[in-house]
């Protein structure tokens, strides 16, 4: 039995190791599959569905679905891009995402995805939810207005920092990130050097006193779309 799996993404042949997910194999081949909750240092979670691809016609999240011999994956097509843009637009109206005064603007993955998909304005009505801010910690800020419930901080604190500072509480529209024992962030052992702090894709977890350090024009996604780094590896 061969130790290589061969499959197709948008008509391009891609190789994968057995057990690799479609996303990991695509990254190695220089094919960008848009994502929000997935992160290279974390185990797949599959909550945001932005990386949804069609596998032999069926929707699957590329971050959790293992690559299999001979599958046909549909990724960068008009249909999938439209579906992803819709997901991003729903995330934008569900929270209070005000880019003009957000410290994460320019380095925000949610914003960068909206830029990449050419979203001028979400087509859905804004919900203006009432969400709490926890600024109790001397060095870290939680602004739930911007949280997209990707669980990156939950997973990073548990799996990378070995602390388990963050957890989800509630269900549906009540679901939110809370800290241990429903206390304030200042009452936990969270530290500004934790991997969980910087791993937030949006401006929900922020370091204090470093906002707006990088000038406009030099931020991560000012001139190049998100995913350009992966696409640059194509053929390398």
């Amino acid at each position: 039995m061969s130790d290589k799996i061969t499959f197709m993404i948008d008509g391009v042949e891609v190789q994968a190791q057995p057990g690799q997910t479609i996303m990991v194999a695509a990254d190695a081949a220089g094919i960008y599959i848009p994502r929000l909750c997935a992160h290279k240092d974390l185990a797949p979670f599959g909550s945001c569905r932005v990386c949804t691809v069609l596998v032999n016609g069926r929707p699957q999240s590329a971050c959790t679905q293992p690559a299999a011999e001979g599958i046909m994956v549909e990724n960068n097509t008009k249909k999938m891009t439209k579906m992803r843009a819709n997901l991003i637009e729903m995330l934008l109206v569900e929270g209070n995402h005000y880019c003009p005064y957000c410290e994460k603007s320019g380095n925000c993955e949610l914003q960068a995805l909206a830029y990449r998909f050419g979203v001028m304005v979400p087509k859905y009505p804004f919900m203006f939810p009432n969400r709490d801010v926890d600024a109790s910690h001397p060095d870290i800020l939680i602004d739930r207005n911007r949280c997209v419930l990707c669980a990156r901080c939950v997973r990073a604190s548990r799996d990378l920092d070995g602390k388990n500072v963050f957890q989800f509480v509630g269900r549906g529209p009540e679901k939110r990130v809370e800290v241990n024992a429903n206390a304030r962030l200042a009452d936990t052992n969270a530290d500004v050097t934790d991997k969980a702090v910087d791993i937030c894709p949006v401006g929900a977890l922020l370091r204090k006193r470093v906002g707006f350090e990088v000038p406009i024009g030099k931020r991560l996604y000012d001139s190049k779309p998100i995913g350009s780094d992966i696409e640059a590896q194509k053929g390398a």
């Binding site: 003009p100 001028m120 203006f128 939810p129």
Partner: peptide
């Protein structure tokens, strides 16, 4: 044509919406 974030998202004034 809507010009700018306030016109299309409410922007800074919409901070009072909650």
């Amino acid at each position: 044509i809507l010009v700018g974030e306030c016109a299309m998202t409410g922007g800074i004034p919409a901070m009072r919406n909650t």
